[in-house]
Design a protein around this nucleic acid. Sequence first.
DNA 1: GAATTGTTCCATCAGTTGATGGAGACGATG
DNA 2: CATCGTCTCCATCAACTGATGGAACAATTC
Lengths: 211, 211
Amino acid sequence: MASPLEKARKDPDSMKARILNTARRVFGEYGFHGATTRMIAEEVGVDISTLYYHWGEKGDLYEAVILDINHDLKQLLGQVEGVIHGLPLDRRMDIAIDMTSAYLFEHPEISNLVLFRYFAKTRDEAVLDFQVPEIISDIARSMGLARDKRQVSNHVSMRILAMMNSIHHFVSGEEFFRGMLKMAREPYIAMVQETLKFMLIPAFVSSDAAE
Amino acid sequence: MASPLEKARKDPDSMKARILNTARRVFGEYGFHGATTRMIAEEVGVDISTLYYHWGEKGDLYEAVILDINHDLKQLLGQVEGVIHGLPLDRRMDIAIDMTSAYLFEHPEISNLVLFRYFAKTRDEAVLDFQVPEIISDIARSMGLARDKRQVSNHVSMRILAMMNSIHHFVSGEEFFRGMLKMAREPYIAMVQETLKFMLIPAFVSSDAAE
DNA sequence: GAATTGTTCCATCAGTTGATGGAGACGATG
DNA sequence: CATCGTCTCCATCAACTGATGGAACAATTC
């Protein structure tokens, strides 16, 4: 029952965990093909073969990374849900945007990896991601956009995708956008949150009121 | 004055143009590191060295591709502007969303490459993109969000970035999202356009009315 | 302390990748 | 026909990449 991933999470100082965390960052920065096992090993400060000993081949390590970030995302959603439960929609969205973006700006590799999975093809055939639909259902429920998480319409799923990706996109593009707009980090983050609220809240609130 | 790019555009059947167009697709699908010169050459049906003869090294070809898609984007914006000129804001946005998304769904490699440039690092140092700010200014002006294209506030730039990327994101993620939602192409595209309007129009229209 | 197990590194391999030099093919020009 | 410039391919290189076997070492168990 104790998967390698659980072991790594239990002891963050273990070699397994150190490799996993570095792999998250490197895969997030350069993508699957852009990252090499040597880059990861070098950054950890160990030999390549140590990577292979702990995580098997490159694709397996990548898969572990994906599972790891999905785990983090779910945990984040749980926290957000706990805070916003029972509040009116506009407040729910306001807080959810703040919390989610703040967390992702601290762990930008999550956004990078999510986006990479969305549209960068791997040369080998890709594994279908079964966790994203689940996460979307969770959001739909906690946002009050669907009564039962089993029956989330495509309609609603699309809107949640658009919402999530607006956030990811500003996190992943930070370097590019900040360079372009010549902004420091803090004002950039503040402006991102403002922009997200500007875009997202009117749409969902007015649609909610119309019902 | 006749750059290689202009030559290629003038004669679409030339080897230069055939390589460029294939490179657009392959770089768009797999990213810079995921695409190999051999993949591109093979798809064109020529030897690798023919690639190098016409476009120089891999990075140069990639750069030509980026310039090429920026050129297409500007052309598209010009067309959109011609159609929406003088209409009220909500109509402008409605039409711009339809036209832009329809075009990008026909040329998805544009969206892919734009997004790739935003957040995928190249192992070599990246070249700063000087064209994106210009495109954003154009949009701001044609949307009526800034009086002078010289003085577009970061505020407005962020909103336009968010808008553009919402579109790109649904185009690039088509395969992933359609697989997830189990939708055919046409209804997917229709639903994307509906979702984009749902999200974008209320925000901009209510902000416009408030002024 | 001996045996077993777990962990790390060194050396190395085969396949891939970016890149080039040179030979030949082709058409235009004289 | 001869010559020249343009274009394409074949052969090949060095560097890089994913991957592995085995030696060395450390920790654990008996």
